[in-house]
């Protein structure tokens, strides 16, 4: 069983960001990490490997030099090897261009099952996963929270409006993850063994994607901080008085009840 997990490196999602000249101010980013949904994707893949040790997990990422650190983290968590597609300008490509590059790479390395995140917590487009499935002609399931394999069938559980459902899809297939149990931390042994794992490096031109596809169809022209919320007022007094005052304000000032 050969599984590909697509990992996108993004700025730490727990830290605030700052905007400068219509861009995220990179000098204020302390830390990059795998997009959280991609960590869930990897955790789902690792749980398949926990049950069947013959499973081979390959991480694939496209981005600038700094992505290596994130890939080493994924290898330390338990993935077997990795492919880095070097591209300093990855953030200027649109989702379709990214999907074409990744699809060309996937075809070269082969797969039975592909995981991506449901969206990257940077441009938040949620474009690349499904597009990759379409370009490879694979059936895809979006928003998985857990995945189990039974022979060559994947059983995927996901949240739907008002409940949960479990779907079956025959492999090869593509799954986008939106949840999992808490992604595991690398063990010391994992960190040591990661250093010996194979990390291939390819470049974008070698994948031969048509230049018309590489032209972005959509471009970001402006970036701002979101409108700030003013912090409001703290209500004083005993609990009963605070509550009475709150209800009065919600009714008379905010007019929401």
């Amino acid at each position: 069983m050969k599984i590909l997990v697509f990992i996108k490196q993004v700025p730490d999602t727990a830290a605030p960001l700052f905007v400068k000249d219509n861009q995220i101010d990179a000098s204020k980013i302390d830390k990059y990490a795998a997009s959280p949904y991609d960590e869930y994707a990897l955790e789902q893949a690792l749980q398949i490997k926990d049950k069947d040790a013959s499973t081979k997990i390959t991480l694939v990422t496209m981005g600038p030099t700094r992505v290596r650190e994130t890939i080493m983290q994924g290898l330390a968590m338990g993935a077997d090897d990795a492919l880095i597609i070097k591209a300093d300008d990855a953030s200027e490509m649109d989702g379709l261009a990214v999907a074409h590059v990744l699809a060309a790479a996937a075809k070269k390395i082969g797969y039975d099952l592909i995981f991506t995140g449901i969206k990257g917590v940077d441009d938040d487009q949620g474009w690349v996963g499904i597009a990759l499935g379409e370009l490879l002609g694979l059936p895809s399931v979006s928003g998985a929270r857990s995945t189990q394999l039974q022979g060559t069938t994947a059983r995927v559980t996901r949240d739907v409006e008002g409940g949960k459902e479990t779907l079956e899809v025959a492999l090869p297939a593509l799954i986008t993850s939106s949840q999992a149990t808490e992604p595991r931390y690398p063990t010391l042994k994992g960190i040591m063994s990661a250093k010996k794992k194979q990390v291939l490096e390819w470049d974008v031109p070698s994948l031969g994607v048509d230049s018309s596809i590489m032209q972005p169809r959509v471009q970001m022209v402006k970036l701002d901080m979101p409108p700030a919320r003013q912090s409001g007022r703290l209500l004083q007094g005993e609990p009963q008085a605070q509550v009475k005052e709150l209800v009065r304000l919600l009714r008379e000032q905010a007019k929401v009840i």
Binding site: D124, Q215, L223, P226
Partner: peptide, 19 residues
């Protein structure tokens, strides 16, 4: 011109379609 939150709402972006 399209406005949308990015970085999980930590920034607001404006996009222009080219096609």
């Amino acid at each position: 011109r399209v406005t949308r939150p990015v970085y999980a709402g930590r920034a607001m972006a404006v996009y222009e379609p080219k096609t």
